[in-house]
Design a protein around this nucleic acid. Structure first.
Lengths: 151, 151
DNA sequence: ACTTGACCTTCCCATGATTGGAAGGACTAA
DNA sequence: TTAGTCCTTCCAATCATGGGAAGGTCAAGT
């Protein structure tokens, strides 16, 4: 099976398959004489595992852990559970942050006439120099959502 | 006021102030003879406006719109409201996606013993070749959260 | 046998917001 | 004068993904 077929069958784009190989998430494949990558059903199975994990918002780093646990028949289920629950914690934090943003904005918008006149409480609040509102101050590095990013 | 003081006063890092200048979100400042950027209280006020907007998850592009509406005394409040409400829609979609991920994972984890034995429903489900679960399939380009990213 | 079109290869670039760091100049207080 | 803190610009990295170019390969149809 060529990379295009493996992509089709797994739901992971050919681009991403090559990328996953380059970062070592999946091993290097066998190649044909012409240099084409060749995939087995087993490889596709692994790719599907990866895609499902991405759909659940796991980072590539976490997925690497999950894949190796998956392939380890001696693994302890608590190790898997720990990764999952830690991820849930992160997701829930992000959900809370987004909810705060949404509710603040909804509140502001509700007080804005939304007509052709210039008066606008939304802008007034954004410009308000007083009162550091007690709102979402996500972690700096990746932003509120930076790290989650599922496909 | 130098850039460091403006950063302190506005809550926007010096790095980001330079970046915002480079992309045209804020105008180029006056410089001292030595090339140091000089900021006024008014500039700091604008930077605060920007930071508040970022805290609410607006993209730099949206903030550019908001800033120009803010500085336009003739603006129609409906234009501002439209930006805000559109953003709320996006936030709410992301919230829903994250909630689906979290609830799927929570459900799976609840069925996982989390002990030292290898049996693990979480991995089983991730590896499950059947049934495309009806779960979060965010838009491809930026991922579930890609675009939101507040500081 | 030859052409066409679909596929594959590698390599580089862009995204978005943000931080880090290097190399070097400017300023300030002791 | 010197140390230390600030400023400057430029370049790189983050994370996951897609776009596209330049060129090789393959299979099917003429």
């Amino acid at each position: 099976m060529n990379i295009g077929q493996a992509a089709q069958a797994s739901g992971v784009s050919a681009k991403m398959i090559r990328y996953y190989e380059s970062i070592g998430l999946i091993p290097k494949t066998v190649r044909t004489e012409a240099g084409y990558r060749v995939y087995s059903d087993h490889d596709v199975h692994t790719l599907r595992f990866i895609r499902r994990s991405r759909d659940l918002g796991f980072s590539v780093e976490q997925i690497a852990d999950l894949v190796s646990l998956w392939q380890d028949r001696e693994r302890a289920s608590k190790d898997v559970k720990a990764i999952a629950l830690e991820h849930v914690t992160v997701l829930e934090r992000k959900i809370r942050e987004l909810q705060e943003m949404a509710s603040t904005l909804t509140h502001l918008a509700r007080n804005c006439h939304g007509d052709t006149r210039p008066h606008c409480p939304i802008l007034e609040e954004l410009a308000n120099d007083e009162a550091e509102r007690a709102h979402a101050k996500p972690d700096a590095k990746f932003g509120v959502l930076g790290k989650v990013s599922a496909r």
